[in-house]
Design a protein around this nucleic acid. Structure first.
Ligand SMILES: [Mn+2]
Ligand SMILES: [Mn+2]
Ligand SMILES: [Mn+2]
Ligand SMILES: [Mn+2]
Lengths: 242, 242
DNA sequence: TACCTAATTTAGTGTAGCCTAAATCACCAT
DNA sequence: ATGGTGATTTAGGCTACACTAAATTAGGTA
């Protein structure tokens, strides 16, 4: 069995992951968006994209001034790293008692350095979990990704009940705040009010005090709408079609 | 609290660890021995030593053609990495079921990337162990090193009872072999025979079949002599002094 | 003392990734 | 069509760490 991805480095992996996350796996990603995510100059990205596209096998398809997309090989590698990341988050949380706002930074480093054996052992010990502590789906070994409902909370109307689907893991402060309000994946909440467009969302648990989250924080939350008297995005996208 | 060792990289850490292991922490290490350990050209070592000695604070003391030694700061960093390595070996063994011949390679990579928090959590979960699965002492957080008896097995005479103190962790095949004979740290064995100087050592457990280990493997084992009718090295070192 | 050899250093390169500054390109609105 | 603007690429450099080949040094031997 030839060692897959002998050419891969921490940097290469980070680029592939960024492209995957921006493009949703299939589509294209732009140079400056990649640069923003990786906190790297745009010129550096151009150089790396050119390189990734001339590897054999190529990890990306790249035409200048036209964006990049992952090849199948690139996709597989990206998904592999994302699996490492999310399994590590689960492991840190469940086996080592990390809080959910602490897991991301540690996983972000370790994801590049654990062996396939380590991956397999923590997956087995955790019972092959499908979602990480933030609700993100964990890609399976075969590359398939568990289904995950993704409606952005800011698009949901007042009066609707929602199940928290996932919360972005990159802002520890927001995670700490949300945890203090009992906002976690799978928790059911009611959208009480949306005062002004940009001043956030008021939520409450079953029959408790309502609380407000800022627009910035709300934008980091995705939900499943349980009680569908329509969301703003539904209305916008589908028109009156139902 | 200023972040200690911001200047440290995986490569730097590996050099410090190698120098520490060669010099025993205090003494000097030579360029080519370092090169051998790190599987790097001697010229590369010279370059790195020069660099490490001109950092501020310097991590090594270096005079050309005269060898290097660690400064106190360099020693602290080396011990820190060794603590990571050995704690990781314990963790992989006890928490994830790795066999003792599997832990070294994984720990060797991860030791550079775990956070101080990760270190603290696994240490606590393991109950602050003093020795790793091969019997190597785990440096404490304060830098002190648990005592470890270190008589080389090849220097022990026939007829003597020994407690296995530690076994080098770098040769997985040897570890597998030894495990199959029940040779582990703290196990008590009898040295039955030492046929010829270079053909190994015959050992046996309490009252079981004797077995032979090659000279190469025996050289990787350190023991505590329990039943002191003198070892070869004692005789050599102390003369008739007792 | 003169020499030999092994250890070590110097000199010159190479690769991976990053950076800034200066083009150039794509696209959109006049 | 034209010009502007932001996105992107090119050009030129830099740091870290490796390598090979060619000196040089240290230490022991004849
Ligand atoms: Mn990463
Ligand atoms: Mn996550
Ligand atoms: Mn080890
Ligand atoms: Mn540490």
């Amino acid at each position: 069995m030839p060692k897959a991805f002998a050419q891969s480095t921490e940097s290469v992996d980070d680029y592939l992951k960024a492209i995957y996350e921006i493009s949703g796996g299939q589509g294209k990603a732009g140079t400056s968006e990649i640069a923003r995510r990786l906190r790297v100059a745009a010129a550096s990205v151009t150089g790396m994209l050119r390189k990734l596209s001339t590897l054999s096998p190529p990890l990306v398809r790249y035409e200048k001034n036209r964006g990049v997309s992952l090849t199948l090989v690139g996709q597989r590698r990206a998904v592999e790293i994302i699996r490492h990341h999310r399994l590590l988050e689960c492991f840190l949380h469940h086996a080592l008692g990390y809080e959910w706002h602490e897991v991301h930074a540690e996983a972000e480093r370790l994801e590049h350095f654990i062996s396939e054996d380590f991956e397999a052992r923590i997956a087995a010990q955790l019972g092959d979990p499908l979602y990480d502590p933030h609700g993100h789906p964990i890609p399976r070994k075969d590359g398939s990704v568990p289904r995950c409902i993704d409606t952005p909370l800011p698009g949901v109307n007042a009066g609707v009940a929602v199940r928290i689907s996932r919360v972005s893991d990159e802002d520890p402060a927001a995670l700490r705040l949300l945890a203090s309000h009992g906002v976690r994946p799978n928790v059911v909440l009611h959208v009480v009010d949306k005062p002004s467009r940009r001043s956030g969302v008021v939520l409450r648990h079953a029959s408790q005090q309502p609380f407000r989250v800022s627009a910035a924080v709300a934008a980091r939350i995705a939900v499943e709408v349980l009680n569908p008297p329509q969301t703003a995005t539904h209305r916008a996208r589908k028109g009156m079609a139902q």
